[in-house]
Design a protein around this nucleic acid. Sequence first.
DNA 1: ACCCATGTAAAACGATCGTTTTACATTTCA
DNA 2: TGAAATGTAAAACGATCGTTTTACATGGGT
Lengths: 184, 184
Amino acid sequence: MGRMTDTDAILSAAEKLLDRNGFSATSIDRLTDAAGVSSRTFYKHVGSRQALIAAILDARAKRFLAAMPRTGTDALFAALGDWFETQGANGCFFLRAAREIGEGDARAQTRLTAQKQQTLDLIGDCVASDLGRRDDALAGQILILFEGATHAAVYRGRAAVADARAAAATLLAAAHIRSGAAYA
Amino acid sequence: MGRMTDTDAILSAAEKLLDRNGFSATSIDRLTDAAGVSSRTFYKHVGSRQALIAAILDARAKRFLAAMPRTGTDALFAALGDWFETQGANGCFFLRAAREIGEGDARAQTRLTAQKQQTLDLIGDCVASDLGRRDDALAGQILILFEGATHAAVYRGRAAVADARAAAATLLAAAHIRSGAAYA
DNA sequence: ACCCATGTAAAACGATCGTTTTACATTTCA
DNA sequence: TGAAATGTAAAACGATCGTTTTACATGGGT
């Protein structure tokens, strides 16, 4: 891991707390305690609560997309399982941010749609690498599985990802057959 | 619709507000304004904020399960689409309640797991009615689609349900073939 | 040695929260 | 008629929120 600036330390501690305990349930006091800084330095580094959350959303979007492969739908779900293992499974961070901060910050809504579009593109690439051609309809279905695994993992754990992974394999096989491939 | 008591009027107005605007973003003032009652009558009828939310969760669980058919997976997703059309698509109400109220009320967590178990049972019945036999593995996969449609509908609307429905049909067909049925 | 940037600890700010209470008006019914 | 019940409007409560400010310590660079 690279060198961590004060700002990065605050951001990563805050991301963990917000993800675990929720946005509105996490006060500035808790954030400063977790980061080990005073409120004065906190505000010097991040500006405001809204700015902190905006920075966290951007950083997390970049980190998440970097952690996902762009070839192989099965590898994609494996990576999603790894993500939950290391980062925790608390439902989609962006969906929760948009709903909890919501109307107050229109940018959270913008960030949500951007993130979901990027996820759909990612899935489209994985599907294309498996199928040898683009299949937008199938990508849409696998997005449902991706979203479903993300939220079912909150209460079902690893089984949610395993089920989504198996379902994706079945859908891919069916699409492959529809393509006119030889039966195994 | 049956006659509505004061308590019911408060509950249904509150449910709509909480679902639309979120739990922590909806103050008692907003709830009393929407119900058209003073805070004094509000507290006489519902006791406290926690009790209000508990009552709403129970009522909604009963109403949701009553709105879902127990035969036919395709009919199940059709009913889910109707639910979103009439009630709005804001993500799973129980998941959001458990995460937003969270640690404060352990009963919200209990209600969540109960609701999800009942949903899984519901799906198991629908799958069995289609397949002529129980298939727990397939039911788990369709639960993922159900959860995925619920949350993807927030940003994709009806397309999310349509994709989930189509994917469920493919999974069912594949399971039917695995059962040794004749190929169409 | 001294200045200045940078940090902490803690008080203070106005706002808003859930909840209770006070004061008063209206209906219900024996 | 008149008392009990039930309602509203609004003030007040202590707590907590995000944010700013005050007062003070520390350590590196010239």
